[in-house]
Design a protein around this nucleic acid. Structure first.
Lengths: 147, 147
DNA sequence: TATTGTTATACTCTATAACTATA
DNA sequence: TATAGTTATAGAGTATAACAATA
């Protein structure tokens, strides 16, 4: 076997480290979701933001950022994007006029439903080798180390 | 409860989606490893590269890139970094003179041992809430969805 | 013609600093 | 003084295209 033999390429990466397994699984999931959601003008990040705004809105940009661990300057860009697509509106909070109170529009809720259907089928593909118990175990374990 | 009430901030992100859980867990693990390895002039990526080179070297840059799913132009930068630190050497493959055959130096193997000790304690912190069976389950499940 | 490695370049993502308007 | 949001800017990280050397 020479150095450049293709047989060596299949050898798995350092599987002892949780971090590498997480990086690989995340890389794959992210690429799948990004491709699948692009027709709706959504990225994984803006999809997550739209989900939170639709389910928990109205809420401030600061609250959104803390929930999704997104820096407030990045939140501005994400909300700009969602607003440009017509999925989210920036309102004013009557109690605190500094705050932009975010809420999903009708089109935003429609896009979200479509995105969820796509995401469900992506997730089915991602988890195709796992039975329902294993899927639940994976979610539970990930939630416990997510911090 | 007002829009900007801090109590809302603790609410978890869309936990139904594997991708979000993976993103969170990966974000945390990456930050922990990056901080912990920086005194050794290693990043998570160069640590992974050094691991592969030490365990499977000598090997070509192309093989390293395919194993770690790193683009070949990025491999150049990572190997530059490891070579500058004195951890890796670029040799020539006598059978194919296009190939750079990578191997770890003595200093590289020493740094790798030190990095592994640090990574082990980071991993213990990352997985502190999981018992040994659960840690093994998590690794097994992640490996099966990593693609 | 195809592949290995390299460089130059551009693009995405994210964070830092400085600002405004409000509190 | 502190916070919400904004802008400008800079820094990672990564990918694309074009090239030289070799197969």
């Amino acid at each position: 076997m020479t150095i450049s033999d293709p047989a060596r390429i299949a050898t798995p990466a350092p599987a002892r480290w949780t971090g590498f397994l997480l990086a690989r699984a995340h890389l794959r999931a992210h690429a799948m979701f990004q491709d699948a959601l692009s027709p709706l003008a959504l990225t994984p990040k803006s999809f997550g933001s739209l989900t939170v705004i639709a389910e928990q809105g109205p809420l401030s940009q600061a609250a959104l950022g803390e929930m999704l661990r997104i820096d407030r300057t990045t939140v501005v860009a994400v909300v700009d994007e969602l607003e440009r697509a017509g999925y989210v509106e920036r309102g004013r909070d009557s109690a605190d006029r500094r705050v932009h109170s975010l809420r999903a529009t009708g089109a935003g809720r429609e896009a979200l439903r479509a995105a969820e259907r796509i995401a469900d089928s992506m997730q089915a593909e991602l988890l195709e080798d796992l039975d329902p118990d294993e899927r639940e175990q994976l979610h539970s374990l990930l939630a416990r180390i997510a911090g």
